[in-house]
Design a protein around this nucleic acid. Sequence first.
DNA 1: TAAAATTGGTTTCAATTGTAACCGCCTTCC
DNA 2: GGAAGGCGGTTACAATTGAAACCAATTTTA
Lengths: 164, 164
Amino acid sequence: MTTEKTQADDAVRDDLHLEKFLPYRLSVLSNRVSNAIAQAYGSRFDLTIPAWRVMAILGRFPDLSAAELVEQTAMDKVAISRAVSVLMRNDYITRSEDPADRRRQVLNLSELGRDVYERIVPLAQQYEDDLMSSLSPDERAQLESIIDKLMERAQAWAERGLID
Amino acid sequence: MTTEKTQADDAVRDDLHLEKFLPYRLSVLSNRVSNAIAQAYGSRFDLTIPAWRVMAILGRFPDLSAAELVEQTAMDKVAISRAVSVLMRNDYITRSEDPADRRRQVLNLSELGRDVYERIVPLAQQYEDDLMSSLSPDERAQLESIIDKLMERAQAWAERGLID
DNA sequence: TAAAATTGGTTTCAATTGTAACCGCCTTCC
DNA sequence: GGAAGGCGGTTACAATTGAAACCAATTTTA
């Protein structure tokens, strides 16, 4: 009834099922996941998502500057700067001036920061495991490669301009 | 020094590869996609993402109230209210009081709104198609079902409380 | 070697978003 | 039928975010 169309060739395009629309679904999924996790460690360690991301990167790649964090995280430099300043306030990271280039500041987890990092990692891992546990091994592998492909495609939009 | 481990069995969990971390990847992917698309129709029709979402739903399900939009979109009611008010300002939707319940306001696309809607749908479709074109038919099907499963899982966190 | 242009990073200001309080209408239950 | 509570929707205010201007150090170039 409601699915009837007056014009045959309008039928397809005229009907957008938002619930089925991939970009929309991605956004809902991503928000649900991020918010849940943010809540989990935010409530324990008083960390925002950007702050935790900075810590996650520094935990793996020490001695980065803010600019290098920008590359790694795809966050913008203002967000990094703010995350860094709250992390400094919490003594979760240290900042030292690079003598070779006095504009540059080298960042690292502090001892306290590494402590927190090491407690959060398993927690984060646990969430990921829980998510993944709903998938078969085959699906997991598929997902990896699918995300890569979609990412590449979306990246292309940004680089080579939008469609149309 | 800082990378040394004191305890052998910390070694595995201690290493979080953010670039491989599903929640993180989802968020980057979703942002890239949404921003690109938002830019595409935002620049043409001066629509924000929430506003476009409201139109997308109204295009498919006429005669909804704001509360029903909340259900459909998973946006919160303030966001809906704001989207509705800009859409009213642009004459993209109409609002009529429900005589049976004078609190309730029935929303619909205006003629102009439907026009815009019908021009955006193919555009949105095109983006989705372009994204999907990077996947094989098999992968597309997989993705559908994978997203469903992940969504369900993440939903469970919200409902039954977080892990741990 | 002194302007000019670039780079790392921060600050400022405006726009977006989330939370909570709120107003008006409606229902219900004494 | 009239207070008490619930629901639809908006407003107000605070927190977050993004864009652009900005400062200081460095590199370029002439």
